[in-house]
Lab assay of single mutants.
Amino acid sequence: MTGIVKWFNADKGFGFITPDDGSKDVFVHFSAIQNDGYKSLDEGQKVSFTIESGAKGPAAGNVTSL
């Protein structure tokens, strides 16, 4: 699925993605970002991701920028 990064705190390594389908915002951890180098996201960035079952509920996985 796709969405827009609502916010991401690079110091803490997590944030939230707002899915394009209008569903509830999804937690994203830096370890789910699939790019080389520094793993961070920018507010407003368009991303593709999967929904994984995290310890505290749904979380984004396999996050790639579009």
Rank of each mutant, 00 (worst) to 15 (best):
S31D: 05
S53W: 15
P58Y: 09
Q34V: 15
K24D: 12
K12P: 02
G54W: 10
A59R: 15
S48N: 09
K56Q: 12
S31M: 08
M1H: 12
F16R: 03
D42T: 15
D42C: 15
A55G: 11
T2I: 10
K12V: 09
G57V: 05
I33V: 10
Q45W: 09
T64H: 13
K12S: 08
N9L: 07
H29R: 04
V5M: 03
M1G: 07
T50C: 09
G37I: 09
L41Y: 03
F8P: 01
F14S: 02
G15M: 02
A60H: 02
F8A: 02
I17D: 00
D21C: 09
N35L: 12
D36V: 11
G13Y: 02
Y38Q: 12
D42K: 15
G13C: 04
V47F: 01
I4W: 09
K24V: 12
P19Q: 03
V63Y: 00
V5K: 00
G37Q: 10
F16E: 03
K12F: 10
P58S: 09
D36I: 10
T18C: 15
P19D: 02
A55P: 14
S65T: 14
A60D: 01
A55C: 12
G44Y: 05
M1D: 04
G44T: 03
P58E: 08
L41A: 02
V5Y: 00
D11Q: 15
N35M: 15
S31Y: 05
L66W: 06
G44D: 04
F8G: 01
F30S: 10
T50L: 08
N62L: 10
E43P: 15
P58F: 12
Q34D: 10
K39E: 05
G13M: 04
A55H: 13
D20L: 08
G37Y: 10
G54L: 09
N62Q: 11
A59P: 02
G54M: 10
K12I: 10
S53G: 10
A32F: 04
P19A: 04
T18I: 15
F27S: 02
H29V: 03
G15Q: 00
G13A: 03
D25Y: 04
S31N: 07
D21Y: 06
A32L: 03
W7I: 04
V28Q: 00
V5Q: 00
G61Y: 12
S53D: 13
N62A: 09
L66S: 08
I33Q: 03
D20N: 08
K24Q: 13
P58K: 11
S48E: 09
T64A: 11
L41R: 01
T2Y: 07
G13H: 04
V47W: 01
D11M: 14
A32H: 07
F30Q: 09
T50D: 08
T2M: 08
G15H: 00
G13E: 02
T50N: 09
K56P: 08
D42W: 14
W7E: 02
I4S: 09
W7P: 00
F27R: 03
A32N: 08
Q34N: 13
G54D: 11
P19F: 04
A32V: 10
G54C: 10
K24T: 11
A10Y: 13
A59N: 10
E52G: 08
T2A: 05
N35T: 14
S53P: 15
K6W: 03
V47Q: 00
A32I: 03
E43C: 15
T50M: 09
V28T: 03
G15I: 01
V26S: 01
N62R: 10
T64P: 01
S65M: 15
A32R: 07
Y38E: 10
